[in-house]
Design a protein around this nucleic acid. Structure first.
Length: 468
DNA sequence: ATGTCC
């Protein structure tokens, strides 16, 4: 009979690394021993941890047991006030999560964007400013998930006249789901010292190399479309007009996912919070783990950017041209920013677009509704942020159960969109009305132009879509 | 989001 994690919790093992380690070792060394004997041994380690520090078998368990001086935190009795944009279209679960986040002792300010919906810990569309603390689940699992748009001096009418050619360019130069490039392109990011100096990051380097330039699954996409610039974008000398553009949405693939998983576990093991807030566990920025996370998060952000740049580079080569402009922004990340007094804040944007004064950003709609090129207005109440899209109005499960393929096909046809891949969970009707969402954030961003998708590639891998 | 469970 094998011991379970539950048995170990019952005899006083704290949640964390020691538990897993003890399970592994006891089953390795005492696999044939009766259950009571295994329990007796482990009880002794809990009761007299120090005596086992040098134990040949259980030394590592004792070390892990001694390690974290677990810090039990309390929430403030009431939540700090925070601004909500488009509250009437935001689900209760997201509001509850934000309310909890506003009770953390490290929280300084918060805001909820109009595309908000429930997530793990901080809601998607949540912005949270803290003092000297970073919350891995306040950044999200896909660290550095971002948008990137390149705009070309090509008449967008060619999306109709050369549709098969453009589809082929997308198919040949993007990879979705588990697929990666046979010959990944090298990138300067692989010379970064974080890949050798941080153990967890080192263990992820080979896969990061395999996956660079790939897009993954879920709501990620690469699409050609028509940009209509209404307000000149002086950074690029881009005049009002209609252009062909490429828009991509993806993140840091396995690299960021595993960095997030690793440091979330450390945070949850060392920063114990009441059940309702447990996913908001933070790392102090001056702790070793906090500093490591900060470096690893920034690396994952730069890696996500590198992936987009390779996508756009490959496609620009396919188009035999160079872009007139490139606009990009993270929307799952934490930044060091200053408050009104000039003191440093850690601003978490989990599915929120940076919208500081003058800052360019991209807010996508869905596969068959427009997205927008925006310039931030720097509104303090929004913590210099805006939405990162339309936001889901339906869970993936519900979308797959209730939306019919025929309905989506008609919608795509009416919108003049060619779709490669994607499941019903990404259907336009699973998302809020982007126009309403934009209306709710008029004070946060100025719209400079729109982007209408025309040839869209998303993940067509059934392994990711779980069509039940 | 993620070779979708250490």
């Amino acid at each position: 009979m094998k011991l379970t994690g539950h048995d170990l919790l019952a005899i006083g093992f704290p949640e964390g690394n020691a538990l897993g380690l003890a399970l592994t070792l006891i089953e390795e060394k005492y696999s044939t021993a009766p259950l009571v004997e295994k329990i007796q041994i482990l009880k002794k380690i809990v009761a007299n941890t120090e005596a086992f520090i040098d134990d040949e078998t259980f030394g590592p368990v004792a070390v892990a047991l001694q390690k974290p001086a677990i810090d039990v935190k309390e929430l403030h009795a009431s939540a700090m006030p925070y601004q909500i944009y488009g509250a009437e279209a935001i689900e209760q679960g997201a509001l509850d999560q934000m309310e909890t986040a506003m009770r953390l002792p490290v929280t300084v300010a918060g805001a909820l964007m109009p595309d908000a919906h429930q997530g793990y810990g901080l809601p998607i569309g949540g912005v949270l400013a803290t003092r000297n603390a970073v919350i891995p689940y306040g950044v999200g699992v896909d660290i550095g998930c971002r948008m990137c748009m390149t705009i070309y001096d090509i008449p967008p009418s060619q999306l109709e006249t050369r549709v098969d050619e453009f589809k082929k360019i997308l198919l040949n130069n993007t990879q979705f789901g588990v697929a990666t490039f046979k010959r990944p392109k090298d990138h300067a990011i692989f010379e970064r010292k974080e890949f050798s100096e941080l153990e967890i990051v080192r263990s992820l380097k080979d896969r990061a190399w395999q996956q660079i330039g790939s897009s993954g699954g879920g709501n990620h996409f690469v699409e050609f479309g028509v940009v209509e610039i209404t307000n000149a974008i002086n950074e690029f000398n881009l005049s009002p007009g209609i252009y062909l553009a490429l828009l991509s949405h993806s993140g840091s693939r396995g690299l960021g996912a595993n960095i997030a998983r690793h440091y979330t576990q450390i945070a949850m093991n060392t920063c114990k919070l009441p059940q309702v807030a447990k996913h908001l566990a933070w790392l102090d920025l001056d702790s070793e783990a906090g500093q490591e996370y900060w470096l690893a998060m920034n690396l994952a952000g730069d890696y996500a950017s590198a992936c987009h740049h390779q996508i756009h580079e490959r496609i620009a080569i396919g188009l035999r041209t160079t872009p007139l402009a490139m606009i990009e922004n993270h929307h799952n990340f934490a930044w060091k920013e200053k408050d009104a007094q000039g003191d440093e804040l850690i601003v978490h944007r989990k599915g929120a677009t940076p919208a500081g004064k003058g800052v360019l950003g991209i807010i996508p709609g869905s596969m068959a509704t427009p997205g927008f090129i925006v310039r931030g207005k720097g509104l303090a109440a929004s913590i210099n942020s805006a939405s990162h899209g339309a936001g889901r109005t339906m869970s993936r499960t519900k979308a797959k159960q209730t939306i019919l393929q025929g309905t989506v096909n008609k919608f795509l046809k009416a919108a003049g969109v060619e779709l490669i891949g994607a499941g019903l969970d990404e259907a336009p009707m699973a998302y809020k009305d982007i126009h309403q969402v934009m209306d709710h954030q008029k004070d946060l961003v100025e719209v400079l132009g729109s982007f209408m998708p025309k040839i869209v590639r998303m993940c067509g891998d059934k392994r990711f879509q779980e069509v039940d």
